[in-house]
Write a protein that binds this DNA or RNA. Structure first.
Length: 277
DNA sequence: ATTGGTTCCTGCTGGC
DNA sequence: TGCCAGCAGGAACCAA
């Protein structure tokens, strides 16, 4: 489940391989992602030299040296980017929908069984008003993301903290795993309404979100099933989850209380009833 | 304007 | 053992 830490890890790993590399050939084997891959996709990308990679929320943005567009890439639920070197060329698998070959001999494969991912070309001049990006909320590591800022964002929000934190229009990049972990870290109940948190709690929550994300990025993200670095490495943050997926196990902070799993807007929330108030 | 519910998709799991 | 319902989740979309 690529959330901010997974996408950031993919970005950093991918940079090592494709920065300054020129695309020789693009093959699309399945155009039916979240939005259909346009028919000029291949010819637009072929010949382009990768200049820069940027992560925004859970999106990966590829900038090219001479193109007047970017490649906007979302890994969806099950998306995985695989780097293949000429020496280790493996056969294409069922859900490898897109292959990008570079003149260096390197090849990228985008594998996405559930096809919730997306690959779009967005003109640079439309970037600032492109709705998928312009509607995104604050980046958790942005300087402006502070306690008072979060308090303002949550003012008048009559939704549980869980739902508010998952909303990409408020804060960008958190998914189910890291919302659960951050709320546990902040000792806040996922059931609390966003508008009820006070100044101190907002401060603590901001710090908790950043701390959890920072640790997860350092661990290369969480590998539950699909997530891998482009070079094949797994993330390890799943080994230190405090609550996510730990229903019925002991809370690592209060020791003897069992972690609860509840459904909030039809999605699992894991939390400790005792220490998350 | 906000909020909650539904939907897309495939692979895995648990119950019978 | 085999089948199938149910679940997993990111986020657009729709309805209230």
């Amino acid at each position: 489940m690529p959330e901010l830490p997974e996408v950031e890890s993919v970005k950093v790993n991918l940079e090592r391989y494709i920065l300054d590399q020129t695309i020789e050939k693009v093959e699309v084997h399945h155009r039916g992602l979240r939005w259909p891959i346009p028919h000029n996709f291949e010819e637009m990308l072929e010949g382009q030299k990768v200049k820069m990679l940027v992560r925004r929320a859970k999106y990966l943005l590829l900038y090219f040296e001479k193109a007047d567009f970017i490649l906007l890439w979302h890994l969806g639920m099950s998306g995985r980017v695989q780097v293949i070197t000429p020496k280790a060329l493996t056969p294409r698998q069922t859900h490898d929908h897109v292959e990008i070959a570079f003149y260096s001999g390197l090849k990228l494969r985008f594998r996405d069984p559930r096809r919730f991912g997306a690959m779009l070309l967005v003109p640079l001049k439309e970037l600032s008003r492109f709705s998928l990006l312009s509607s995104l909320g604050v980046e958790p590591f942005d300087n402006s993301f502070s306690g008072p800022f979060l308090l303002e964002l949550f003012k008048n929000r009559s939704r549980p903290l869980k739902a508010a934190l998952l909303d990409q229009k408020i804060i960008a990049g958190l998914g189910n795993i890291y919302v659960c972990e951050a709320l546990h870290c902040a000792k806040l109940s996922p059931l609390r309404l966003a508008k009820t948190i006070n100044h101190l709690e907002a401060e603590i929550l901001v710090k908790a979100i950043q701390a959890v994300l920072r640790k997860a990025i350092a661990a290369g993200g969480s590998t539950l099933r699909d997530h891998r670095q482009p070079d094949g490495e797994k993330g390890t943050f799943q080994d230190v989850f405090k609550v996510y997926g730990r229903e019925g196990e002991r809370c690592l902070r209060c020791d003897h209380v069992e972690i609860k799993r509840i459904l909030q807007s039809n999605r699992s929330t894991f939390y400790c009833e005792r220490c998350q108030i």
